[in-house]
């Protein structure tokens, strides 16, 4: 893993320098938060909307960084022979994956922090009731969705195709999994479809931790399993 820290730092700088990536991961979720809070109020069940929206949208950010930005970066590197040049160095594919994942998740950390700050400053957000649970759920969510993004990036031939596929996977998923509209406002039929997506356990676990409810071990186990299966498949499928 020589050079891992270096590559992560540089990849993060590159992600922040890319106006599209920065917009999608930082500005876009903040705009959604603002739009949603114009209706404000409380959710069915009495929870203030902001206390659901910030954890939900943190999954939105992780999903966007994992499923859209990351695969596009990786596929574009392949298309333009950036990976080919790296292949002539001792850098391993595991290292490349690890660095891509870490850099994009740091981008998502920035996005999450921004949402939290806006929530606290402007909308009276209550802080996470159980920070340790939220962090654990967030990291597992980032690992599971990130490994799916790596798998897409490993398989898709061009950057353009990766963006199209990433968006096609991401958008339906955020709607039905409750990362965009709170689960309690979704119709029952939609919610049961959403529960089958890999984003649902992240939404449930992060929201539970934020509100101080016990986090279901099943959701954590599902995320860990997705990470192992999709991550293993991505490493196997990877071409330079």
């Amino acid at each position: 893993m020589k050079g891992l820290g270096n590559v992560i730092a540089i990849e993060l700088k590159l992600a922040v320098r890319d106006p599209m990536a920065a917009f999608f991961a930082l500005a876009f979720p903040a705009v959604i938060l603002w739009v949603k809070m114009r209706n404000g109020g409380t959710l069915p069940g009495g929870l203030p909307a902001i206390d659901a929206l910030v954890p939900m949208l943190s999954v939105f950010v992780v999903g966007l960084a994992s499923l859209v930005v990351l695969p596009a970066t990786l596929a574009q590197y392949r298309e333009r022979h950036v990976l080919k040049r790296l292949r002539a160095t001792p850098a391993s594919s595991t290292m490349i994956f690890g660095a891509q994942w870490a850099a994009h998740m740091l981008l998502a950390v920035l996005g999450t922090a921004l949402l939290t700050v806006i929530g606290l400053a402007a909308y009276g957000l209550s802080g996470p009731a159980n920070l340790a649970d939220v962090v654990l759920a967030w990291v597992l969510g980032a690992l599971s969705l990130g490994s799916i993004g790596l798998l897409i990036g490993a398989l898709v031939p061009s950057g353009r195709a990766a963006t199209v596929i990433g968006l096609a996977v991401f958008f339906p998923m955020v709607f039905v999994s409750g990362a965009m509209s709170a689960r309690e406002t979704l119709p029952e039929s939609m919610r049961s479809i959403g529960d089958l997506t890999p984003m649902a356990p992240a939404v449930q676990a992060i929201r539970a931790g934020w509100e101080g409810h016990p986090v279901s071990p099943l959701t954590l186990a599902v995320m860990a399993a997705i990470f192992i299966v999709a991550g293993g498949a991505a490493l196997k499928a990877f071409r330079w």
Partner: peptide, 19 residues
Amino acid sequence: AALPDAIKVGEALQMYASF
């Protein structure tokens, strides 16, 4: 071969050296 568009000359050399 190519490098990422936004990488700077110094960064590329430093990164490759770290491998």
